[in-house]
Design a protein around this nucleic acid. Structure first.
Lengths: 246, 246
DNA sequence: TTTTGTGGTTGACGTGGATCAACGGAGCAT
DNA sequence: ATGCTCCGTTGATCCACGTCAACCACAAAA
């Protein structure tokens, strides 16, 4: 019997105010009072095992998700079978925003490791956003941030060469790990070379070669998915592309 | 004398309900009552001459803009001088959504022809969105649509070859002209080959060659910026990329 | 009219990254 | 252990697109 440990509904739900991801997630910038009201919003957590889908392209859109633990990729499948990874998401980041426009998810969200998300029913979110100023504003910021991020990727895909792309990717990962309290210089990638390549518009062999080249040049140390950045400045210099001559 | 034509403040403002872009713009899907309330929101129109900036990267963010007439491009400048076009916008589309996240515009918006926009003060928009359910929902949809669109561009840049990209671009333009009541088969591009190239991650010569090739193959007729699509199905076939063999 | 400038086309050539192929190592089930 | 499978690395070759350069069309200025 569990009499000694009272388990209430509340304890099964997410208490945003207690969540250590607060700084990274939707509540960022909201007042304490406002955050307390968020808890009516977050219905349940959901665990997703590695390689499983949180949602699929075509699924009806009902909720957005905040990553509580773990990480995900989003991708779309072209008619001819090509896969395009559109993003990697870490704890505190939101998934599913693309579904609002058509009320249907437009991509697949797949866990890169065993993960857990907070489920945020979208109709409730809209309702609460009307009442809680800070929530509305933060939600808009989250969506806008996604737009800015996507523009960054477009720039990367549209105007950088292979090594610049990979350098930008590593610096981005490093920065995101840092924001989560992990080492900026040493981390574990949860995605394969092929997934990185798809995201960066490169083939897996090219990604692999660029990793090796960076290693030869003393910029990083690679061991499978484990990355150690030895020369952050060197990587940064790479992405401002020395124009051909002069 | 103009005595016979009373000019009121109201007539200088935009009446969303009377605007013929209603179907394409923010009000789409809102009720008549709701749309009437929008008029308190749209402060003024602003005319932008060809090649002039509506806003610049770094400008403080105060308003978003609905294009009332004309067209724009958005771009970002990399440190080394490279320009990356992140989008082309037509009538009814919104500009400036990227600014919400950092309260600073992150790209430049430049008119491709003499244009006019409706200025929507962002703080007023948030305020009104709290009162008018339909507005809140439509605004979210507009932002989400931008995210979906960007994912589409990422897919294009990440996994298509030059001719596929250009075919996708032409079909997209055609579809957007159609939505605005113009011919699907014949239209005028307002941007240069270089701007198209930047957007598609190609050099202007490659764009030009692809146009010529499409013309040789009878898919389109090109004369400078004037495009006539002769074989829509043919273009569509191009973008599903016949996998190398079989 | 000629001039000048901007944008577009086309050709010749070079190269970055894709493709094809072989192999090696890690993790997992047996 | 053994074998299997997935993932990553590396080499050899190819080709799509970038680069460089010449030229052309059109529009605005002189």
């Amino acid at each position: 019997m569990k009499a000694a440990v009272p388990i209430t509904i509340a304890s099964l739900k997410v208490a945003c105010a207690q969540c250590n991801l607060l700084e990274l997630c939707l509540p960022f910038g909201m007042s304490e009072n406002e955050i307390d009201r968020l808890d009516e919003l977050v219905g349940a957590r959901r665990k997703i095992k590695r390689q499983q889908h949180l949602y699929r392209a075509g699924d009806p859109f009902e909720a957005i998700y905040a990553i509580r633990a773990g990480s995900f990729k989003t991708d779309v499948l072209l008619e001819d079978g090509r896969e395009q990874v559109t993003g990697f998401q870490m704890t505190g980041e939101m998934l599913g925003l693309d579904g609002i426009s058509t009320e249907t998810h437009t991509c697949n969200a797949i866990a890169l490791e065993d993960s857990e998300v907070c489920v945020i029913a979208y109709d409730k979110l809209e309702e609460l956003a009307r009442a809680v100023d800070g929530l509305q504003h933060q939600f808009h910021k989250v969506m806008s941030r996604e737009i800015v991020r996507d523009h960054g990727v477009m720039t990367l895909l549209g105007s950088m060469r292979a090594e610049e792309r990979l350098a930008a990717f590593l610096l981005n990962m490093s920065q995101r790990f840092t924001a989560r309290g992990f080492s900026a210089a040493e981390f574990h990638l949860r995605m394969t070379r092929e997934e990185i390549g798809s995201y960066l518009g490169l083939k897996l062999e090219t990604v692999s070669r660029a990793f090796s080249k960076f290693q030869d040049e003393g910029l990083i140390a690679v061991q499978q998915k484990h990355i150690r950045i030895l020369d952050i400045a060197g990587l940064k210099k790479l992405i401002q592309h020395q124009p051909s001559r002069c």
